[in-house]
């Protein structure tokens, strides 16, 4: 097995007396597509908050590209190539669509890009995501699907090796889900590893090469999508006894 891109080792995170993550380990190979699923409150978002640096884990270690990033602030992790989208879109509201992309280009990706070309770079990304027509629109005027696309476009502008997509498809119609899936497939073909958190089973089963299931802060199953569907523990977690 090749060296993992991301190696989350036995991390624990509590909020007061509530244990959100209990000794969870996840690893991810370069270019892999991993699905992270689990019922509400199972710790998925806490997990990716810890990986992206929005929260610091209490115990355990996070290693990215062979480097221990457990103590690094979020912006340093973004510069190393970890990008994320947010469950509830968090656009920079006072900026236009293209200006939103300039922030990660000028900060997260700054040392890895040609400074003279950042506007073209931003435009290329918008073109790939299908937002080019809206480049100079105020992002407050976007529709739900375009807002989701903007989340992905902005994460992409950070030039990631690892993209964490937090429920990028929640609330979208079936066609829109396919559209976003297509984007994520293309992205992955470009070599970006993806962790997908999703409640839409159809999407996550189709997209993921491997799935990790969390329940009440613990990892209860891990394997290819077909095995996960028939796993009795997973059924129990979702449907109860």
């Amino acid at each position: 097995m090749s060296a993992p891109l991301l190696d989350v080792r036995n991390i624990t995170k509590s909020f007061g007396g509530f244990v959100a993550l209990n000794d969870v380990s996840i690893h991810l190979a370069p270019g892999e597509r991993l699905g992270l699923i689990g019922p509400n409150g199972s710790g998925k978002t806490t997990m990716i908050n810890c990986v992206s640096g929005a929260l610091f884990n209490d115990g355990g270690a996070i290693v990215f590209e062979g480097r221990d990033i457990t103590k690094l602030p979020a912006y340093r992790r973004a510069r190393l190539g970890i990008a994320r989208s947010f469950q509830i879109p968090k656009p920079f509201r006072s900026m236009t669509v293209i200006e939103n992309l300039l922030v990660p280009l000028e900060f997260a990706a700054w040392t890895r890009i040609d400074h003279g070309r950042i506007n073209e770079e931003a435009f290329d990304i918008l073109e790939r995501i299908g937002l080019a027509d809206l480049a100079h629109k105020n992002c407050g005027d976007l529709t739900q699907i375009d807002m989701r696309k903007l989340e992905l476009a902005r994460a992409l502008a950070a030039r990631p090796n690892l993209l964490i997509s937090d429920e990028a498809m929640a609330g979208l119609s079936s066609e829109e889900v396919d559209e976003v899936l297509e984007i994520l497939f293309t992205l992955n073909e470009g070599g970006v590893a993806v962790i997908m958190i999703e409640h839409i089973m159809r999407a996550v089963m189709r997209y993921s090469e491997r799935i990790v299931v969390l329940d009440a802060g613990r990892k209860i199953a891990e394997g290819p999508p077909d095995d996960i569907v028939h796993n009795p523990d997973v059924e129990r977690a979702y449907l109860g006894e």
Binding site: A54, A78, R79, A83, F92, V103, F107, A157
Partner: peptide, 12 residues
């Protein structure tokens, strides 16, 4: 506009 999003986009 959004401090958490800024931090995750590499803004110190």
């Amino acid at each position: 506009d959004d401090e958490l999003a800024a931090e995750c986009m590499g803004v110190p």
